[in-house]
């Protein structure tokens, strides 16, 4: 087994992790919005349509739904 370096030991110390909220580059996370793409439209609509189908089936099948 390879020798564990001091840096690796530090990383595996409980509680440390290698990241904390204080070490963030917030701009990086919040800025730079990409153009809206057709894949996103497809993903969002697909999800809503799946929800409507699941709702319809659910209301019919689930015995405690308002339809029963």
């Amino acid at each position: 087994m390879a020798e564990v370096t001091t840096e690796e030991k530090k990383e595996t110390q409980p509680g440390t992790g290698s990241l904390s909220v204080d070490a963030l580059e917030a701009e990086d996370v919040l800025a730079g919005a990409e153009e809206w793409s057709s894949t996103e439209t497809w993903l969002v609509l697909g999800s809503f349509i799946a929800a409507i189908i699941a709702l319809f089936i659910g209301l019919l099948v689930v015995p405690t739904s308002v339809l029963h």
Partner: peptide, 10 residues
Amino acid sequence: YDNNAIPQWI
């Protein structure tokens, strides 16, 4: 992904 690199509280 190395689990140890996820902060312990998370």
